[in-house]
Design a protein around this nucleic acid. Structure first.
Lengths: 226, 226
DNA sequence: TAGATTGTTAATCGATTAACAATC
DNA sequence: TAGATTGTTAATCGATTAACAATC
């Protein structure tokens, strides 16, 4: 409804929360609910209600006192803002286990990402298809990227080859790299890198778990209360 | 050297940057470099040099004027702080394509994560092994988790079943859920959820790419400079 | 020594939260 | 109407950055 086309700029934290709202709202939408309050969302998502209102206000036209926000409109607005509607083509380099998994993943369609081809050095799979997508020799990378005007490159090669592949992608006119290899990539100025960083997730999870466990130890360890 | 055992608390943003430092430092370490300056790190990682010093100071014993930080010590300290050294056991639910990929992924060992078993409903794979790990019926979940005292559960089932599986995990004494399904999970107070959120990564990547592309349009569109 | 570098204290910036007014 | 709810303005909080002192 609102928030289409021209990219309104939102704070980074807001941008990171938007996909969360979206998946949350979709659940209630699928259950037939039509409206929801910021208070309710905040409670469920463990956020502050004012924060929820600000986030939603930045990309949507707002709710109404007493009735709250219209779920369908919110979904529409977030989806459109995040650009999940328009298709973006991407190439994937490294058709190993992880690469094959991403090639087969149906869910990307919901986010507007379409992987049009994979590249590898393994002669045995070059020329074949994975999940319907052609696997080419890495030597074809530049060719294909330029011809198809692809801007996104996905790296799913072993860490030792990630930098080299990244350089090849940059040379092929790729502007955004989605990196699944657990290494830091050095890129030219104009190239964006997004690391899909399981190490970060795991670190956060572990640290929080540690805190919980040591806190729990305090209770069970020496129970001098009561 | 420092920063082992007792969990020093660092700001969330710092925690999120630490894995980045680690992978960056490992590259130079493997090339035989022994020391590095915060200035250099900051430049390469596109951070502020004071920020780098603060981050490193929070988990390490510090560097020396003129010579900088000792790379090996930093690696050791970050590794130890993030708890990548000690082994944490986990179970995985959903041995589909993504589940199998995670089961086969060797890299988790570097982060101290050991997936000890997988669970599924598919009779055809129950009783088999994937990457050496046993696949059990989902009915065995509670049994195994309690017997092995497992605290981490990884969810790789389709989104429609994620909440149900999450409930089962919570009932099995799991304290931390690593969720790969693109849905919001509702959990009891004491359970931590970490979403591995490709939607968030993709949203950030897309938005940044959009900005670059529209900025570039401005130049190429009407080139009235020069 | 001079200068590269670390480390610290204070200023700034941006996001979150609190307080309150507006609306259905 | 009363009260649930949105929306806005101001206060707070926390992280980043700037300025400067300390050190090898």
């Amino acid at each position: 409804m609102t928030a289409s086309g021209r990219s309104i700029s939102v704070p980074r934290p807001t941008l990171e929360r938007l996909p969360g709202y979206l998946s949350y709202l979709k659940i209630y939408h699928s259950r037939g609910m039509t409206h929801i309050s910021a208070t309710r969302i905040a409670e469920d998502l463990k956020l502050h209600h004012v924060q929820v209102r600000k986030d939603l206000a930045s990309i949507s036209s707002g709710g109404r006192p007493r009735t709250g926000y219209e779920i369908a409109a919110l979904i529409e607005d977030i989806d459109s803002f995040l650009g999940y509607g328009k298709v973006r083509t991407a190439v994937l380099v490294g058709a190993g286990q992880l690469g094959r998994t991403l090639l087969s993943y149906q869910g990307f369609a919901d986010y507007g990402l379409e992987i049009i081809a994979a590249f590898d050095v393994n002669e045995e799979i070059i020329g074949s298809r994975i999940a319907g997508k052609p696997v080419y020799s890495i030597d074809e990378l530049q060719n294909v990227c330029r011809r198809m005007d692809v801007h996104i490159g996905i790296i799913t090669v072993p860490m030792t080859q990630a930098q080299h592949v990244c350089d090849l992608l940059a040379d092929s006119g790729i502007l955004a790299v989605w990196n699944f290899a657990p290494v830091h990539l050095r890129v030219p100025e104009h190239v964006i890198v997004q690391n899909e960083n399981m190490a970060v997730s795991l670190a956060i999870l572990s640290k929080q778990l540690d805190e919980r466990l040591t806190a729990a130890d305090k209770y069970s360890g020496n129970d001098d209360s009561v």
